[in-house]
Amino acid sequence: MPAEDLRLDTTGRVPNNVLPVRIYRAALKDRTPEQIEAHLAARDWTNSWRNGIYPFHHYHSSAHEVLVIARGQVTVILGGEGGVQCTVGEGDVLLLPAGTGHRNGGGSSDLLVIGAYAGGREWNTCRPEQTDPDEARQRIARVPLWTHEPAE
């Protein structure tokens, strides 16, 4: 199944990215967290973690991020305040280009998300109310593209 592409506004306090958010539905369904991490690592998405998604709007200006829903479901708000609401569940993969605003808009109690970064880059957490968007856009422009799609 092909990825869904979402283009977000790049003119506000949340920089977002000219590259689209990509959503791969059920691409990694019925896999253990260890299998998901191994799959991502084989595609050069490393520096992984397991947890949830912050309940506040934020973005990363130093790395492209992938989020895999290993268990449960969640509504992710993409793009910043008033952004696109996207409900994702087990096995869904979200590729968030650097600068993409996101936050947890509510999820199941069993939610487990596995995150990783293209090329294993170090990530930062930027909040729109605390970060200069023009400086963030300059950092985002220097982030190299990923070498492999995370779910193909």
Rank of each mutant, 00 (worst) to 15 (best):
Trp45Gly: 01
Leu111Gly: 10
Val21Cys: 12
Arg142Asp: 14
Arg103Ala: 12
Ile53Trp: 06
Val66His: 06
Gly101Ala: 09
Thr32Ala: 05
Gln73Asn: 07
Pro20Leu: 07
His39Pro: 04
Pro15Lys: 04
Val74Asn: 08
Ala141Ile: 12
Gly99Asp: 07
Glu135Cys: 12
Glu81Lys: 14
Leu96Val: 03
Arg50Trp: 10
Arg22Glu: 02
Glu4Asn: 04
Ser61Val: 07
Pro144Val: 11
Ile77Asn: 13
Val21His: 05
Arg43Ala: 02
Asn104His: 15
Arg50Leu: 06
Ala98Trp: 03
Thr100Ala: 14
Gly80His: 09
Ala26His: 04
Ala116Ser: 06
Ala118Ile: 11
Asp132Pro: 05
Asp5Phe: 12
Val68Met: 09
Asn47Ile: 02
Gly107Trp: 11
His57Arg: 01
Gly101Asp: 15
Gly52Arg: 14
Ala38Gly: 02
Leu40Thr: 01
Ile114Ala: 01
Pro15Asn: 01
Leu28Ala: 08
Pro133Arg: 08
Gly115Met: 08
Val84Asn: 10
Arg121Leu: 14
Asn104Leu: 03
Gly79Leu: 07
Gly89Ala: 14
Ala141Tyr: 15
Arg7Cys: 00
Glu81Phe: 13
Ala38Leu: 08
Leu94Ala: 15
Glu65Ala: 12
Arg71Asp: 11
Gly119Trp: 06
Glu90Pro: 11
Arg50Met: 10
Val66Cys: 00
Pro15Phe: 07
Ser109Gln: 11
Thr46Val: 13
Asp9Ile: 03
His39Met: 05
Ala42Pro: 12
Ile53Ala: 07
Leu19Thr: 01
Gln138Gly: 14
Glu149Pro: 01
Ala42Ile: 07
Ile77Ala: 14
Val88Tyr: 00
Glu149Trp: 00
Arg103Ser: 08
Leu28Met: 04
Pro97Trp: 05
His39Tyr: 10
Arg25Met: 10
Gly80Lys: 08
Gly119Ser: 12
Gly82Asn: 13
Gly120Asn: 02
Pro150Leu: 02
Leu8His: 02
Thr75Ala: 09
Arg43Phe: 02
Ser61Tyr: 01
Phe56Leu: 05
Ile114Leu: 07
Gly52Thr: 14
Arg13Gly: 03
Gly52Tyr: 02
Asp110Phe: 10
Gly107Leu: 15
Thr11Met: 07
Ala63Thr: 05
Asn104Ser: 15
Ile53Leu: 03
Glu90Arg: 10
Met1Ile: 13
Ile140Met: 14
Thr87Pro: 03
Leu6Glu: 00
Thr147Ala: 14
Arg142Lys: 15
Gly107Arg: 01
Glu65Arg: 05
Arg25Leu: 08
Gly120Tyr: 06
Leu95Ile: 10
Pro2Ser: 15
Gly52Glu: 08
